[in-house]
């Protein structure tokens, strides 16, 4: 079963690995070359590598696009791809039970998503360290070593569940975008705001809060996926 999952989703594994590897490499270079002070200046328009880093950080601070990419690439096609092409009629009538089939797939892809996003998050956090005093740690709260992997797992699970329920890849991808942004808005408006207004705002405490939130949502989405695969199509 692991071979089949690997062979079916090898481009997903490669895509996720490549995406986070390239980003990690970028920030290793940025760290080595001392690029990052750009985060502290105000107003001036700059280009080149520093300009890119600034836009990238603002984008991530804004709406955290990395989990969206993960959900669209790894989550949405996982079940919807099979249902759209009818190959579930092959996959689900073999000797391997449907449950084990889905456990294997979600474990393998989930592991790749977690490992590569966590590796990237730690490289990114290390690069940011010298600038944290000026920019503040909360600038990279959505890319923290706990928050980012958890958010990526959530979007992966959301895409999987949406794919199981909708049976189509593109609507499942759209659900990932909408679902992720909805959770982000609600989380920032209530959870982050309350934390920042509280007694002692702390980056790692907030990371743990995000980890709990996103891991819980991911677990719910996975449960929906398993139930849907077990019931909806039987």
């Amino acid at each position: 079963m692991t071979w089949v999952a690997w062979r079916q989703h090898r481009w997903v594994f490669a895509g996720i690995a490549a995406m986070f590897a390239v980003l990690s490499a970028l920030f290793l270079i940025a760290e080595a070359s001392g690029n990052g002070s750009v985060l502290t200046w105000s107003g001036t328009v700059i280009g080149g590598f520093p300009g890119f880093l600034r836009s990238y950080e603002e984008l991530n601070n804004g709406f955290a696009p990395l989990p969206i990419l993960v959900g669209m690439l790894a989550g949405a096609p996982l079940l919807a791809g099979e249902l759209e092409h009818g190959t579930h009629r092959y996959s689900w009538t073999q000797g391997v039970s449907r449950n084990r089939w889905l456990v294997t797939k979600t474990l393998m892809i989930g592991a790749v998503v977690t490992v590569f996003s966590a590796a990237y998050a730690s490289v990114h956090t290390r690069w940011y360290q010298p600038y944290a005093a000026q920019g503040g740690w909360f600038m990279i709260a959505s890319q923290g070593s706990l928050a980012l992997p958890a958010a990526c797992l959530f979007t992966f699970a959301l895409g999987t569940a949406a794919g199981a329920l909708l049976g189509r890849v593109v609507p499942a991808m759209a659900t990932v975008v909408v679902g992720h942004l909805a959770v982000l808005v609600v989380e920032r408006a209530f959870v982050r705001r309350n934390h920042l207004l509280g007694e002692a705002p702390d980056f790692w405490t907030y990371q743990a809060i995000q980890l709990g939130l996103y891991a819980g949502l991911a677990a719910c989405c996975l449960a929906v996926s398993f139930l849907a695969v077990r019931n909806k199509f039987s």
């Binding site: 079963m1 071979w3 062979r7 079916q8 092409h85 190959t87 009629r89 092959y90 073999q94 391997v96």
Partner: peptide, 23 residues
């Protein structure tokens, strides 16, 4: 099934390997 559904991106040899792994 009616469409003779198999994994379209697999080579025939890989489809046999999948059959071996899944049964």
């Amino acid at each position: 099934d009616q469409e003779h559904s198999l994994y379209r991106t697999f080579k025939v040899r890989e489809m046999l390997k999948a059959g071996r792994k899944l049964n």
